[in-house]
Design a protein around this nucleic acid. Structure first.
Lengths: 342, 342
DNA sequence: AGAATTATTTTACGCGCGTAAATTTTTTAT
DNA sequence: ATAAAAAATTTACGCGCGTAAAATAATTCT
């Protein structure tokens, strides 16, 4: 019992009866050694519980097995969920994910990229802040590290972009709302941080035009990532007016959550029933959207597909070693989630 | 312009006119070199933008500047928030935080500890899963790495524990609910994953006894971390019965969010008004608690204080180099947050 | 069985830095 | 001003591994 402690790969190679370079090869890719050799190593591994020193391993490797994951705001459950999915997929693909949040802050985002650069990652999956991002810094980063952007795009940056088809999803829910009642007004922040927000506005306008309807934008002040608070405060003001719309489509679910809270406080009945005062819809299918009062009608982003495709693309890029320059954009369609709020 | 690229510390030392070990000393602690030396290095640093290779740096250091942060479930905004605060504090203290989530899974928690061990962290801040944790694995880990537990305790493990005083906070809200209406029933999961849940139940029972009241536990089935869903499903059943309580105190806010959603669906009026059907209170002051319908009366955990103290204790431990064995527990009191749900 | 192929071992070197010990410089005390 | 003490710097060595090239062994094919 209690076999002596293994200090390094040399010793481990000794107890497995192999040379160190062979063992090294095994740890880089177990498939590259003979079956019998592999069995011997794995037997020794079970007995001695040795792990190569991460720092020594990565010092001389051109490319590490690290994959950086950068999200703009981890306290948003949407990003927490997608990050979790991506993490799992990276591990399954044989990489070591390193999760960083930019906390909604441009400077932090830059620091994250700097930190990652010094970790020599094989690749990076990044959901940028959007407008608040330092475009130049991200460009420079993408020049050095294979990077796939997801969720929110920055034109002509990164190898690839994977996201949602806002044109389709907003078009769909505008159609739905129009067919089942009054056409929606669009509730959003006047200075959106996120490219998706801008695309959704455009999509709303074009959908209304297509239907031959007059658009109505409700643009409210507010900055940062406290969307619920902004939706609540500004929404309260909007809803208190006599001119309030009969149907509101919010640029995202978190704004809608705040708006629903404001509506409740004003004792407005939200829903599609005959005695309802107002209909509210959102976008994203936020994890909490089904627990709002009433449940929020919204469009689900296919975040599982986005995560899968993003990881797959990055792994491809890493495998091919190709820095193919600007690649293609992939947009996944949204799915209408009908609950009781609209 | 465009000075030649710096490959390593040797080159950087050359362009700053110093020897490499001196530069190395500077990067370990700028205070340990002479003022004039420091100025020269920092001037060169501004011009050449060199960063020491992380892997080479940590290979020979006994102790890295890494601090591991392990939370049980990052998709829970409460943990996302406290993790964010802790991250910032670690950076301010001159360390490099590494954030890992156990995703509510025992095996993942163990893997996280293994990963951390091979990163040779100076210390670790850990919020364990609780009952689902592999106690032995955590014990072994704490033997090797200075570890401060926070949020949820595992008796006799780790150097220190920082958390909330459930006895105080539950006692306070039970008092409040009793003084302002009917005494509360306690809504919880029958098999709680979290030690806090168990302490809260005990605290509820003792508070009721102190007040000379008959306790009423409503224990519902359900496992995992989908608290809203459990609160919604089980809560719907409970609230539909004629025997439903007039006042419900939920073991945590996420259960309460689900319960509120169920109440809304049953068209029950929640609140402390004269025409209300039921009062609902929670615990934690979850980031979304103020946007529920109606706003959730709850107890705020002082997560900023917990984060500050946890980091401070760990930095102390690291500084003193002392493995003092089992230290003290620090419990912060909660703060009553009166909203309209109770 | 012999040749061609594939897998493994040996040899040899270097990565970029930490760190103890030796040396030099600077500061303080006399 | 000079010696002693303290601080800063340099010298010298090694960490644990990757990796390339050459040599050897095992396997497969004809």
């Amino acid at each position: 019992m209690a076999p002596r402690k293994i200090k390094n790969m040399e010793e481990f190679a000794a107890v497995s009866g192999l040379s160190r370079p062979t063992v090294s090869k095994y740890f880089n890719d177990p498939e590259t050694v003979r079956r019998s050799t592999r069995d011997r190593i794995e037997a020794a591994l079970a007995q001695y519980d040795y792990r190569p020193n991460i720092y020594a391993v990565n010092q001389n490797r051109r490319l590490t097995k690290n994959i950086g994951i950068v999200v703009p705001f981890l306290a948003d459950p949407f990003f927490a969920e997608i990050a979790r999915t991506i993490e799992t997929l990276c591990i399954e693909a044989g990489f070591r994910p390193i999760l960083l949040s930019s906390h909604g802050d441009r400077a932090v985002e830059c620091e994250n990229l700097d930190s990652l650069k010094s970790l020599k990652p094989a690749g990076v999956l990044m959901a940028p802040l959007g407008r608040a991002s330092d475009r130049r810094a991200i460009e420079r980063f993408c020049d050095e590290v294979p990077t796939v952007l997801f969720d929110s795009n920055i034109d002509s940056v990164g190898e690839d972009f994977i996201g949602s088809d806002n044109q389709q999803s907003i078009g769909m829910i505008v159609d739905y709302l129009y067919r089942t009642g009054d056409p929606p007004a669009f509730f959003e922040m006047s200075k959106p941080v996120n490219p998706n927000a801008i695309k959704r506005r455009t999509a709303y306008l074009s959908a209304m035009e297509r239907l031959g309807l007059a658009p109505r934008l409700i643009q409210v002040a507010g900055e940062g990532w406290a969307f619920e608070e902004i939706g609540f405060q500004a929404g309260g003001t909007v809803l208190a007016k006599r001119t309030r719309p009969k149907t509101v489509l919010c640029s995202n679910d978190r704004l809608a959550i705040g708006l629903l809270s404001a509506a409740f406080e004003l004792q407005l009945r939200v829903g599609h029933g005959p005695d309802a005062d107002i209909r509210v819809a959102g976008h994203d299918d936020h994890p909490f959207a089904r627990f709002t009062c009433p449940g929020l009608t919204t469009v689900a982003q296919d975040y599982a597909a986005i995560a899968r495709r993003s990881v797959a693309r990055l792994v491809d890029l890493i495998g091919s070693g190709a820095r193919a320059g600007r690649g293609a954009d992939t947009l996944f369609p949204g799915k209408l989630i009908m609950r009781t709020s609209a």
